[in-house]
């Protein structure tokens, strides 16, 4: 836990010159005894003190929260928000640079003015270069106000994690045994599909949309239709990562992710079978998120893991390195 009083101080380029000149003038004043040089020295030292007080005033009472995006994909820009609140009742804060410190991500935002008792948000663009877990550790609020001589910063603990999904690549066309069982299949039971299962008399109170008008006209009474229950296309993306390393693994993961996305976009139920992990079949955005997250966090190695176990009821899309 970083204490609230902790500060870091560094010189700016102007600050280095300024300090050097101050020391030089101090030596000249001491050497010559020229009181006007002492006066100039006093002004320079007082400016340093005023600068220190005001920069502290700017930093004090400022709280910052990080706002992470829900989804981030390698190679694609993501906006990370930094919301700052000035907790001081009267004094505004000037010239605040808010930046990441430690962790895997570097980025910063700049606020010219943060009025008293108000909030403001800045964002920075972050383009992740790799998939996987990205850790955030601290947020540092820094200011060079009022004169730009020194940079005073205050680190604040703000641990967070962002899972970056694999890079988006076009899915490669697949060939082989796995395509034989593609398509949606009737299940020979009444359900909500499109195909007709059976006809029967319409029951009072039943939805009028279930009436089969042509049969009703033929029979002279209201005939209802029951639809066939259909099972959606079911695909299992299989990736055995055990023999893969480095770039080959990355390519395979990106390919697997592309397949998952393509199949989900096509309306299929997708399951994901990895060495040591299996994601049951499902559809929709939640399934996409779960599958991409699993792929994002997939590490190399795992020789002791068992081979991937594909979904027995789905078409198998085998991904090779």
């Amino acid at each position: 836990m970083t204490p609230a009083w902790k500060r870091r101080l560094s010189f700016t380029r102007m600050g280095r010159w300024y300090t050097g000149l101050t020391i030089g003038i101090g030596l000249a004043a001491t050497n010559t005894g020229n009181n006007l040089l002492f006066l100039v020295l006093g002004l320079l030292l007082a400016s340093i003190i005023v600068s220190g007080i005001l920069s502290e005033q700017s930093l004090r009472g400022v709280r910052v929260e990080r706002r992470l995006p829900s989804v981030a994909t390698a190679g694609q820009p993501a906006l990370i928000g930094l919301q700052a609140r000035n907790g001081k009742r009267r004094a505004p804060s000037f010239s605040l640079e808010i930046r990441e410190r430690g962790g895997d991500v570097a980025g910063h935002g700049f606020l010219v003015l943060l009025p008293a008792a108000q909030s403001a948000e800045v964002a920075y663009r972050f383009v992740p270069q790799r998939r996987g877990l990205h850790r955030f550790e601290q947020i540092e609020v820094a200011t060079r106000a009022p004169f730009g001589l020194f940079e005073k910063s205050r680190p604040m603990d703000a641990p967070a994690e962002l899972v970056v999904f694999p890079r988006e690549v076009p899915a490669r066309p697949l060939v082989g045994r796995t395509l034989a069982r593609d398509g949606e299949r009737p299940e020979d039971r009444i359900g909500l599909g499109l195909e007709v299962h059976s006809l029967r008399d319409h029951r009072p109170g039943e939805d009028a949309r279930s009436i089969h008008w042509r049969s009703s006209a033929r029979a002279g009474r209201l005939i209802a239709v029951d639809r066939e229950q259909e099972r959606r296309k079911r695909v299992c993306v299989v990736l055995d990562q055990r023999p893969l390393r480095g770039e080959a693994l990355e390519r395979a993961v990106e390919h697997a992710a592309a397949l998952v996305s393509r199949e989900l976009d096509g309306g299929a139920e997708v399951s994901l079978a990895l060495a040591g992990a299996f994601l049951p079949a499902g559809s929709g955005e939640a399934q996409r998120y779960a599958a991409l997250r699993l792929l994002a966090l997939l590490g190399a190695g795992g020789d002791g893991l068992g081979a991937p176990e594909p979904d027995a009821e789905g078409s198998v899309l085998q991904v090779r390195g």
């Binding site: 001491t30 050497n31 010559t32 006066l39 006093g42 030292l45 005023v50 009022p146």
Partner: peptide
Amino acid sequence: LAALAFFGIAGAALIFLTFPRVTIGGLRR
């Protein structure tokens, strides 16, 4: 900022008043 400058000037006066006047006396013009 001008008010800030006057704080600086006041500080300068204070430092001027209290900075030890131990001088070497060389290179005096």
